[in-house]
Design a protein around this nucleic acid. Structure first.
Lengths: 104, 104
DNA sequence: TCGATATATTCCTTGACAGGAATATGATGA
DNA sequence: TCATCATATTCCTGTCAAGGAATATATCGA
């Protein structure tokens, strides 16, 4: 997931899809990218579980996949406890180090 | 930030630092990676703003940088509104498409 | 100051991946 | 069925980044 979002073009696509679902051609127009690259990027995003496709006549409508973003949110949220006590954490570690040096 | 986390080795380092700050040598030991690669990865993570370093005697203690993760959290959170109404969003779009086809 | 330890940097090689151009696939409407 | 539109795939090439080995830098203790 992170490596998929790490590519600037793909992040732009995600930011676009965030507003509403888009067909491939719309993405091409809006972002000024070439159609094959857009398709390739969408493939990567789909494999990462970040987008899903919905066929609609001859168009293929891509939209964000909620599950993936919920997963990301959970991951990031699990860090929250850390910076609430971040100074304590570093401080505690340093003290531990000092102790070890005193009595090896 | 995303591309920094997109590298598996670096993600492992972040997961390790999440427990508590670590010196470079400790990371090398714990993760079984080679020291130069760890230093390089830490450099990338630092440039992405994800970690900071704290010199301590001859050791360099790396720890996660809270700001970066708060930023990530804000970004992910800003998507939350979307899947609350995700079906509505897709449905609304499809209806719009139908309308356009009827009266071009 | 010197030796030792901890970490960072450089150089090199290799593999992965993004972009471009051309083409293939697939679905639709006449 | 055929022509066409929308999208996907392939092939090629260049670039960039990761890993390995060797070395440089820095900091401390004696």
């Amino acid at each position: 997931m992170f490596s998929a979002l790490g590519e600037p073009g793909r992040l732009r696509i995600v930011e676009l899809l965030r507003r509403r679902p888009h067909a491939v051609g719309e993405i091409v127009e809006r972002l000024g990218m070439r159609q094959p690259q857009v398709s390739k990027h969408l493939k990567v995003l789909a494999q990462a579980g970040l987008v899903r496709v919905q066929p609609r006549a001859r168009h293929r409508i891509y939209h964000l996949e909620a599950t993936a973003f919920e997963e990301m949110r959970d991951w990031v949220d699990s860090f929250e406890e850390l910076w609430e006590t971040r100074l304590d954490s570093l401080g505690r570690y340093l003290v531990e180090q000092e102790e070890e040096e005193k009595e090896p």
